[in-house]
């Protein structure tokens, strides 16, 4: 899932300060599951902004709505009328949701209420952790199902750097060393000898650093 967290309130207020009537638009999928931009968070955000507005004596109106998935135009169309009725949309969806709104409604001002942080999963109540960087050339098969691109701070492919210590990364005692995780899993699977091979430089062109990537499936086109 896509994991995000709300921007600081001051930044949100700053972005929407010129507008009188704002729609706060949530998303019912990933950001609902990570408690950042679902229906509930839309409600809380609206009351917070209303209160802040009242305190500073500004006349503001906040509408609330949440669609099933902000990243698909057909769901956005369901709130087209509300979107047309406001000065700006504050999206509590991920960055894809924000862009979907911008593309579907070219004349609408839209602002992100979240920082989209990573592709990841919940690992315990209240804790989410990154798992994938969408590199476009998945190497999980080689590394026993642990992603070296995301879980090693240096995206190393040939084993841990010299800073790996007691299972944590050199950059912080709070970050597990991705390579210790890979090593441990390969050990359990009896595959440690595969680490002796030299993994060649990665083809980064499949992923990050190229704008406008898309996937076209001729078999599915109409």
């Amino acid at each position: 899932m896509i994991v995000g967290e709300q921007k600081p309130l001051d930044e949100i207020r700053d972005q929407i300060s010129p507008f009188k009537k704002v729609l706060i638009l949530g998303c019912g999928t990933c950001v609902t599951v990570c408690f950042a931009g679902g229906e509930k968070e839309v409600g809380v955000m609206a009351s917070t902004l209303r209160m802040a507005g009242a305190v500073s004596g500004q006349e503001k109106e906040f509408l609330e709505a949440t669609v099933k998935r902000q990243c698909e135009w057909e769901f956005l169309d369901q709130v087209a009328e509300q979107i047309a009725s406001v000065d700006a949309v504050l999206s509590l969806g991920c960055g894809i949701g924000v862009q979907a709104i911008a593309e579907r409604f070219p004349k609408v001002r839209v602002y992100p209420g979240l920082n989209t942080s990573f592709l990841g999963m919940p690992v315990e109540q209240g804790v989410w952790s990154a798992r994938c960087a969408a590199c476009g050339d998945c190497v999980l098969g080689r590394f026993a199902g642990v992603c070296p691109i995301v879980r090693c701070s240096k995206s190393l492919l040939n084993g841990p750097c010299g800073g790996s210590h007691d299972g944590v990364c050199e950059i912080s005692p709070d970050i597990p060393c991705g390579w210790q995780l890979i090593y441990d899993r390969l050990e359990v699977l009896g595959l440690l000898d595969t680490l002796e091979e030299i993994v060649p430089p990665k083809d980064w062109s499949a992923g990050m650093g190229r704008g406008g990537r898309s996937i076209v499936r001729e078999d599915l086109k109409i």
Binding site: N158, G159, P160, C161, S164, H165, Q180, I198
Partner: peptide, 14 residues
């Protein structure tokens, strides 16, 4: 002295 210790001579060989 880096961890995992057992990997350090393997890494040297690599």
């Amino acid at each position: 002295f880096g961890h995992p210790l057992q990997f350090r001579s393997v890494r040297l060989a690599k």
